[in-house]
Design a protein around this nucleic acid. Structure first.
Lengths: 226, 226
DNA sequence: TCGGCATGCGACCGATCAGTCATATGACCG
DNA sequence: CGGTCATATGACTGATCGGTCGCATGCCGA
């Protein structure tokens, strides 16, 4: 938790610090990210940063558990319970992709919870965030299961598999589509514009279709041609 | 590429170094991993390590592109082209899981290619490895598509989605099943034994079934009960 | 026995980091 | 004015890192 001083900060200064911190933690690992660097870039002396936060982890935790979710909620909003399950799910995924493209730094920060790290405290934090995300997704899928739109032998397993698809999986697909690395997308505003809403929609739909129907055809397999 | 001295090393010394290096790079990020630590643990002076490798990256590259694939091939072997596509694919996935459980450090090292990092050289290395893995998987899926066992609107997209399922996705499921963190599994020999071949098989099959049939039932959705 | 060469080795270097601390500043109060 | 208190600030600490360097060691051929 930030110190009380942080909340009494002039808006401009606080915004600058948070902005640079997000930038730093978005394109470096927690271990690689440097508090000195953040302070330098935000033009705030390092000593001052320690007036606002207990330590590096405190700042990171604040971004991960408060700033990012707040900004994400503001962008994504809440899912409406109308329409049939798969249509709603499609919307859900597409809005996630929109967030990824419109706010790559925030998306990356949220996804950082999947990053490996040797620091046990950071691991704990990441785990908690992952778990929360899975819970949320599980709740969504549960509705589908109750309505009979979705069938899984083990909903926990299914939730995890679906999570990797609409998370790292779709991110990977988007990057391929853009022909760029995550790093380049984070750095370039123009690059992300290359993925218009139309194509975005198509990719989301393709992923959802995969989740829904799989790749098997149900038809009998053609024998190996002679 | 290691220096020639490395290849002239007494077997025991080389093995010790490689072993400790794998251990270090398996449970820390490249950035977090410490060459000093590796040298210390292998009981080899740091100066000597620099007689064998150009630098930290050189050692890492060697492990990632030579040691890990060699040991993995030795364990997994090559897929046999007999049987129908989905049966073979099931085997393929199950052997991957066996590797994960029997040699978690090597599996983790191979998976490290998906780790984010700020170092451009490491990113390049990781990208190359990912790309190679995707090519391999794509070739497998192509066979399925040709035989009509598999249908995807875009095979590249499908390959990437499948890759995240049988990679990070299944790893995540296995960890949940073991009720442990990746770190604990890497450290404890006894822990991994808890996932017997039977349950392993069941999980692999469940994942493949998901890939094959998806979660949708095809049945019409039951309307929200009043 | 000697000389040269590959290798072993660990002290050392410069850089960077997270985090601390003593001092400076300046707003507000009496 | 004087005093107090929150805050600003950057020099400093101690640790670790990747990488280098120069000396020590020991093998091999003459």
């Amino acid at each position: 938790m930030p110190k009380s001083t942080f909340f009494r900060l002039p808006e401009e200064r606080r915004a600058r610090l948070v902005h640079e911190a997000i930038a730093e933690f978005a394109d470096r690992t927690y271990a690689e990210a440097s508090l000195s660097q953040i302070a330098r870039r935000a033009n705030i002396p390092k000593g001052s940063v320690y007036q606002y936060f207990e330590d590096k982890l405190d700042l990171y935790r604040w971004l991960l558990t408060e700033e990012a979710p707040r900004l994400k909620r503001a962008f994504v909003g809440m899912p409406s319970p109308e329409g049939d399950f798969w249509t709603r799910f499609d919307d859900f995924v597409e809005r996630g992709m929109a967030f990824l493209v419109e706010h790559p730094r925030l998306a990356r920060l949220s996804a950082a919870a999947a990053d490996p790290t040797a620091n046990p405290e950071v691991r704990g934090l990441h785990k908690a965030i992952c778990e929360a995300g899975l819970q949320e997704l599980r709740a969504v899928l549960e509705v589908g299961a109750e309505r009979g739109a979705l069938h899984a032998p083990d909903l926990d397993v299914a939730t995890r598999l679906v999570a990797t698809i609409i998370g790292p999986g779709l991110t990977d697909v988007v990057l391929q589509e853009l022909g760029a690395e995550l790093h380049e997308v984070l750095a370039s505003d123009s690059l992300r514009k290359r993925l218009g809403p139309k194509r975005r929609r198509a990719l989301a739909h393709q992923a959802v279709d995969f989740i829904r129907k799989g790749l098997g055809s149900g038809k009998p397999e053609r024998r190996k041609e002679t």
